[in-house]
Design a protein around this nucleic acid. Structure first.
Lengths: 367, 367
DNA sequence: CATGTTTGTTAGTAAACCTTACGAACAAAC
DNA sequence: GTTTGTTCGTAAGGTTTACTAACAAACATG
């Protein structure tokens, strides 16, 4: 609560503007008087803000309320959900870039994919650009913005500081794409995007942690509804945290017993393929390791919700079961009696939809 | 960035008011023009705000600037540091309640103590009240407010939801004290208070974790300069997180290998007393355990700074050394190359001074 | 049909910050 | 000693923002 920047009345205005959009985005089909009651602002002020938003084309009147009530019938408003579409791109899969055109509600209207074929560095950047171009061409409405969920460490300006798999280091992806297409672009970490999606479109709380298991292991943290970035923008990079005190397999990073050595999907699949009859045991142990690693985090942050994202076949079963049991055994039940752990409800589209949330949040202050 | 409440111009005013106080609090002896330059507001607005603050007695003119510069000499301003004093109380020690009268800069002017003598429940509350009363009587200026750092889980209204050692459960300490003394009261968790103190009076970053080792083990987390509370206000309660995968001593909570069984001072002292020649080994192992527990937290939050508070004799040496080494060995150096771990510079007064920070922050928006 | 309710707008006011302009007080240069 | 330019603080006036008060329109209800 430490003030660091001046606040002018016009900033307050912008805040209240977003508040109106937010109210309409979530509930939709409300009258000016409804919004006034919900926000605490007066009808006059709401009328003023709404008039502005209607001129900008962001809000439309959708007719009169039908139900029989005394008084003048209300004029219903809604976000102009057919005014814009959003492009969301997911760079987190190992061998393929995936993207989609989405509507303002986060529904996927059109998909596209581009195989990576081992591209790195500038080639990978060109691929992202090509994918974005084809998606923008597929949009049937003006594009509100382009969101990208990238693996690795991404700073607040959308510079990918480090993404080893893609050969990126200090790659100015957001600036490059914004210049190329002339539309608003947001680039952020894939797990952070996923956490935002789960919060907006799933049922997630505003304090939660999303664990993304794939070729690597990463996490996205939401505290008070806001993503956490960390001192070097590397918050959530838990794949190379060592788990337990009993050694473990050697990791590409040089250490032993990193979380990834127990949990990354290639390792799990290889282990199961090598001894199919030990599948239950392998998955259970992986879940336990995840629980061991998460327990201090859940305890320190007093998290009430952990969400898993990744291959359902591997995660949703003994692994998740072992994780929650381990978590419960290793933290204070008194503080975490309501701790829940579950799979995401958004499946494989989670990062693309999270990318859309980032655009909504940046452009409209809505999410 | 999700807007949830309306913002009126008067709120902006309050923010800017605090901004002026904050500027004066930190730098002091500045002119109106200096503040205008630093905050980005105009000289006119600053003059207006300052006039208001002078009327309220919070700011005073301290004379003219002496140095030879062209132009009209500046009228220097400062917080009226002799207008108020603050009462800070620390309930975190095992057998004694400690308190102090502090000035606005957080310097301790007068101390008082009250032995607990096994008091719990309402008796303990009465002791706090008595200590506060004696301190208020010692204050030589009007009291800006009373801050209390309590062990256990404390909610945002200053209700101690749970503090086993003091026999408190749902104890409405803040309300009780506010009613009794008729002054602003802030009650919060002791480790959170300590973290605030280290941030304001020590050299701590705005993203840091403070580990408080004493009869128990707790932590205070500062993210972006703001304390983290957690879903049930139990953030930082890491004393009963299980460490490692190799058992450990039995804990009062029923589990095995809780962080407290490795680190709490009574256990450490007993272990060292039992085999003095193994002191180095005991301290090193305790440090390693702390490092093991913290590694996932430091990794997930990408913390750059961890501060230890507690008995210097035990912590500041092999224990701290083992902790930082373990942390480095268990996290990615790439992300945490600049990770530092150090003792607090505020010694045993840290909680009382943190309590003062809470009052400053609540009453003036300053810290 | 009269009455009361609800909606959305108009008109006027108060608060907060801005721009512009100015006098006071000084240093430095001539 | 005078001129010039700088800096400080204040005064006056304008713009933005959201408020209160009042009202017409449109409806349900007794």
């Amino acid at each position: 609560m430490r003030p660091t920047t001046k606040v002018l009345p016009e900033h307050a205005r912008g805040h209240n503007r977003s508040l109106v959009l937010q109210t309409l985005y979530r509930a939709g089909q409300q009258s000016r008087a409804d919004i006034a009651r919900e926000t605490g602002l007066t009808r006059v002020t709401i009328s003023d803000l709404v008039a502005e938003l209607i001129v900008e084309g962001l809000v439309i009147e959708t007719g009169q309320r039908e139900d029989a009530r005394p008084g003048k019938p209300a004029t219903l408003l809604d976000l102009n959900r057919n005014a814009f579409q959003i492009i969301g791109i997911d760079l987190s899969e190992y061998a393929i870039f995936r993207g989609a055109v989405l509507d303002l509600d986060g529904q996927i209207l059109h998909r596209a994919e581009l195989p990576l074929a081992g591209s790195t560095g500038a080639d990978a950047t060109a691929l992202v650009s090509a994918l974005a171009e084809s998606l923008i061409a597929q949009a049937t409405l003006p594009v509100l913005g382009l969101g990208v969920g990238s693996p690795g460490v991404v700073d607040l300006a959308g510079v990918v500081l480090s993404a080893p798999n893609l050969g990126w280091e200090g790659e100015e992806l957001q600036a490059t794409l914004a210049e190329r297409f002339g539309i608003p672009v947001v680039v952020a970490n894939d797990a952070n995007a996923a956490a935002l999606a789960e919060h907006s479109f799933g049922s997630a709380d505003s304090d939660m942690m999303l664990i993304k298991v794939g070729h690597g292991v990463g996490a996205g943290l939401l505290l008070g509804g806001t993503p956490l970035f960390g001192s070097r923008f590397a918050a959530g990079e838990i794949g190379h945290v060592v788990v337990g005190t009993d050694g473990g397999a050697e990791c590409a990073c040089g250490k032993r017993g990193c979380l990834e050595t127990w949990l990354a999907t290639p390792r799990l699949e290889r282990a199961i393929a090598a001894s199919p009859d030990r599948e239950l045991q392998i998955l259970t142990e992986a879940g336990q390791r995840l629980g061991i690693a998460l327990a201090p985090v859940v305890g320190a942050l007093n998290l009430a919700e952990v969400v898993l994202s990744g291959p359902t076949r591997l995660l949703d079963g003994p692994l998740a079961q072992a994780t929650i049991e381990t978590l419960r055994n290793r933290t204070m039940a008194e503080f975490h009696g309501d701790l829940t752990l579950r799979m995401t409800t958004l499946g494989e589209d989670i990062v693309m939809r999270g990318a859309a949330v980032m655009v909504l949040s940046a452009q409209l202050g809505v999410s």
